[in-house]
């Protein structure tokens, strides 16, 4: 296991564990207001101090982890399910249909995700769901491209030709040969999209499009801290660091996986001389 993979796995594991833990237990009730004790500096009781309404910042951050992690995970699932399928099919079938599918997915790139999210809020109402869908839509063309690019050489490979000669159909080949051979590439891309998803979720909740109050979210904590920058800079620093660490964790995990799963690092074959009778 390489260092990046280990570091990335540790960070991502830690963030996910905290997010799960926060559903059951936090040091303080993250929603409990205590106006008398607002703007408290870090102390043994409040490791990261309290905010403008006297809420415990550490508890807010722990509870706030569920939003970015959950939303980006759901968005990656949307991207993988739609884009992955589209890419594999387009590469396998070829022709006009494939061309159209690729163009259509490229077309989505022209719409900034944020605009999609804003428009979705207007139709679906505010909430987590439209953040998931907006980021998910943006993941679709990414996975279409990646799945297409990765599966095209597989569809054209000798072993797929051999499977056809062996009388196997497109569905068998897609599931038994293509998917296992592009899984690594998709997994690596998924971790990268997860890190982008965390960033995007933070942006959306910063402008009020993600997790809705009173549930805490990192993006909105930053929004609220912005006007208090001069008096309580820690309120802006703590959630920002939480975002950076999470994104960094997913990025390291992605790069570590890319290295670990690189087929060029497979064990070298035996020399041919040994087959001589």
């Amino acid at each position: 296991m390489n260092a990046r993979l280990a570091a990335g796995a540790a960070i991502v594991g830690g963030v996910c564990a905290l997010a799960l833990l926060a559903l059951l237990w936090t040091p303080h009730d993250p929603l409990a207001l205590n106006v008398a004790g607002r703007f408290a500096p870090p102390s043994p009781a409040h490791w990261l101090g309290t905010d403008q309404l006297g809420r415990d910042v550490l508890s807010l951050i722990m509870r706030g982890a569920a939003g970015p992690v959950g939303v980006s995970l759901a968005a990656v699932c949307i991207g993988l399910a739609v884009g992955g399928t589209l890419g594999v099919l387009a590469a396998g079938r070829g022709g006009i249909g494939a061309h159209a599918a690729l163009r259509a997915s490229d077309f989505l790139f022209a719409f900034p995700a944020l605009l999609v999210a804003i428009l979705l809020r207007e139709t679906l109402g505010p909430g987590v769901l439209n953040a998931m869908v907006a980021i998910g839509i943006f993941n679709v063309p990414v996975f279409t491209r990646v799945a297409y690019g990765a599966s095209l050489p597989v569809w054209r490979s000798g072993y797929v030709a051999a499977a056809r000669v062996a009388g196997r159909g497109g569905a068998w080949i897609g599931v038994m040969h293509v998917l296992p051979n592009i899984a690594n590439t998709l997994i690596v891309q998924a971790t990268i999209q997860l890190s982008l998803g965390v960033l995007a979720e933070a942006s959306l909740s910063y402008i009020g499009l993600g997790v809705q109050p009173p549930q805490p979210s990192w993006g909105r904590m930053l929004y609220e801290a912005q006007t208090l920058l001069a008096i309580a800079p820690l309120l802006a620093i703590a959630p920002g660091l939480a975002i950076v660490v999470t994104v960094l964790g997913f990025n390291l995990l992605g790069e570590g996986l890319r290295q670990a799963l690189d087929p060029r690092r497979a064990t070298p074959p035996e020399p041919d001389a040994e087959t001589a009778p």
Partner: peptide, 23 residues
């Protein structure tokens, strides 16, 4: 068609891409 598939088989050029590395 199945009988033809069984009757007519093939071996392709590149031994490095004609076998699925995951099987």
């Amino acid at each position: 068609r199945r009988r033809m598939r069984a009757d007519v088989q093939a071996v392709f050029q590149d031994p490095y891409t004609s076998l699925d590395p995951h099987k």
